[in-house]
């Protein structure tokens, strides 16, 4: 499958990247590992004029301990990040989600920044132009209807990132940079909850750093897939426990992860969050297992994660 025509530019600095973006009237996309972007362009879901490669920018590939934080460059690959001793020691939840992401080969190419900012997915969206034209364009393609839920005015595509939810449970923040300057937001603030355009990131903005407070945590990531590798999560649950409290993030259902807090971990509070997350989950028939099933799996995976961590008494 050949790619449509576009130009390729490699930026050496963030400033250069921002400049290139502006020069192309925003009809540009930033490229890191390309494992999410290139298929989207191949399927003509994106039609860029120019691709701006960020891999040549120094500094986007570092992991540094600054004060009491771990500062992760977005261009570091999932595989590299996984090897970092801090990750395994301090953030087992993130370690597990990195380990569970796609397959080893793609972990070596995919970057943490790209993984966080991956587009949402739908069985009726990630298809060729011919397929989608025959079916008729949906909301996410600029059409007027949702092809999965006919009368819906909102898009139900699923955010299938494995690692953003883990990062959320460990209070990660994102530092974004644009021509106007830098801003730092909590990771959950990156999500718009609108499947058509799932991120709040502004046109041209570049993810510069992911900042994680360095505090030891306990945690687990539970991922439901059909196969043992390559697959995106049909439901994913990240849980991080800090002392008596816990944070739970649910991914794979709907356009953004859902975040829940537990102030004091016990069987009752875990059950409450599990019930709450179950109520919140609104899967539709846009992934390979049935919606009702995926909904049911939300509390199951939450409880499993807690059980594996050994918090809340378990069974």
């Amino acid at each position: 499958m050949i790619l449509p025509k576009f130009d390729y530019k490699k930026a050496r600095t963030i400033e250069e990247a921002l400049e290139l973006y502006n020069k192309h009237d925003g009809n540009a996309f930033y490229l890191a590992g390309g494992t999410d972007l290139v298929p989207l362009i191949k399927l003509r879901l994106l039609q860029p004029k120019v691709i701006i490669d960020l891999k040549g920018i120094d500094g986007l590939k570092d992991i540094k301990k600054i004060n009491n934080s771990l500062v992760v460059g977005p261009n570091i690959t999932l595989f590299e990040l996984k090897q970092n001793p801090f990750i395994k020691d301090y953030f087992p939840c993130l370690f597990e989600s990195l380990e569970a992401t796609s397959c080893k080969t793609l972990q070596m190419r995919g970057t943490i920044g790209g993984n966080i900012l991956q587009n949402t997915r739908c069985l009726q969206y990630n298809k060729s132009l011919e397929w989608r034209t025959a079916r008729g364009f949906c909301l996410k393609m600029g059409g007027k209807v949702c092809n999965v839920v006919p009368n819906s005015k909102s898009c139900f595509s699923n955010y299938c990132g494995d690692n953003a939810p883990s990062l959320m449970t460990i209070d990660a923040k994102a530092k974004l940079v644009s021509a106007k300057g830098e801003r730092t937001v909590r990771l959950e603030k990156l999500f718009s909850e609108d499947g058509r355009s799932p991120f709040t990131i502004k046109p041209g903005e570049i993810l510069k750093e992911i900042i994680i407070p360095l505090k030891k945590t306990k945690g687990a990531y539970e991922k439901l897939t059909v196969r043992g590798s390559i697959d995106y999560p049909l439901v994913g649950v990240a849980v991080t426990v800090k002392k008596d409290a816990a944070v739970v993030a649910v991914t794979g259902i709907g356009p953004s992860p859902h975040l829940y807090e537990i102030k004091e971990i016990n069987e009752k509070s875990i059950n409450e969050v599990a019930d709450w997350a179950y109520e919140d989950a609104r899967p539709v028939l846009n992934a390979v297992l049935t919606p009702l099933y995926r909904k049911k799996m939300v509390p199951v995976l939450i409880k499993r994660a807690f059980k594996r961590i050994g918090a809340g008494g378990g069974r």
Partner: peptide, 8 residues
């Protein structure tokens, strides 16, 4: 190892 279909 890399998927050469995804690399420019």
């Amino acid at each position: 190892p890399m998927r050469s279909c995804l690399i420019l």
